[in-house]
Design a protein around this nucleic acid. Structure first.
Lengths: 138, 138
DNA sequence: TTATTTACTTGCGTTTTGCAATTGAAATGG
DNA sequence: CCATTTCAATTGCAAAACGCAAGTAAATAA
């Protein structure tokens, strides 16, 4: 008989492969929560990502199905990155991470209104943030 | 007047600094969900962490307040790593990441009962997992 | 007393990162 | 038009991080 065993991999492994590096989550945050969409906008994050690293990460994110690379019709130099549902569904992960950081690091601050809503009506907040990100890219 | 501005850092930044590398989350998963507590147990993860990397990560995790390094009284060679509340409070993050991976990677599998409980009674599941981890290390 | 177990440390070659300079295509200005 | 600027990268190189294998020290077991 042939080998029927499914390759079951641990959920944490897959996540680490996709966004378990120093920069991918930063880029996702900027695309999802800061409304950035262009390469030049992503270059301006206060963490200071290097241009070669940004380029390689965007390429990998596209390969992993997190973003779709598109040209602006009215200016073909410009490129913008559209978020997929797969990426937008990481918003709950970003919020959960934020909740943790705000609790355990005294230098960390998130918009208080955001954290309040996350505590009081998480599902509605998530839906709103996803909707806002979707609207931005149409 | 002196500078009154607080250094507010982004929540994602702090999280990346603490567990935003290839191995820390793997170690946390093994400590929190697989019940491992000894160096030799952590060495056996199927991802194959190198011994020098494991040592450096455990040192950093201790410095970051995620684990406490202790000697076994009955065998002073042996060391075990106890999870702090700060670490145990990352269980929701691990579960949220798992939920995402199970949805978007067809090779990923988590215990179905775990995922069902996470959907139906997340708060109770989190409390149970934290309690289980705490009991294990006493 | 010798061997084994445990938890690391050290050395070293490879890979990844960070920084600066450069490129090429497309748009803009004169 | 033709030169300049903008935009999105790519390239080259030094520095840091990583991965593997071997070695070490302390404690226990035989």
């Amino acid at each position: 008989m042939s080998d029927l065993k499914l390759e079951n991999r641990c959920p944490i492994d897959y996540a680490l492969e996709v966004f378990g590096d120093r920069w991918t989550l930063i880029v996702l945050r900027d695309l999802m929560l800061s409304g950035k969409r262009h390469y030049r906008e992503l270059m301006t994050s206060k963490e200071g990502i290097a241009t070669n690293i940004l380029a390689s990460r965007l390429k990998k994110m596209e390969a992993d199905g997190l973003v779709i690379r598109k040209h602006k019709p009215e200016d073909k130099r410009q490129v913008f990155y559209e978020l997929t549902d797969k990426a937008l569904d990481l918003i709950p992960v970003l919020l959960e991470i934020s909740r943790w950081s705000v609790i355990y690091d005294k230098h960390t601050a998130a918009p208080p209104e955001l954290m309040r809503r996350y505590q009081e009506e998480p599902q509605q907040l998530i839906a709103d943030l996803q909707e806002a990100a979707r609207v931005r890219q149409t």
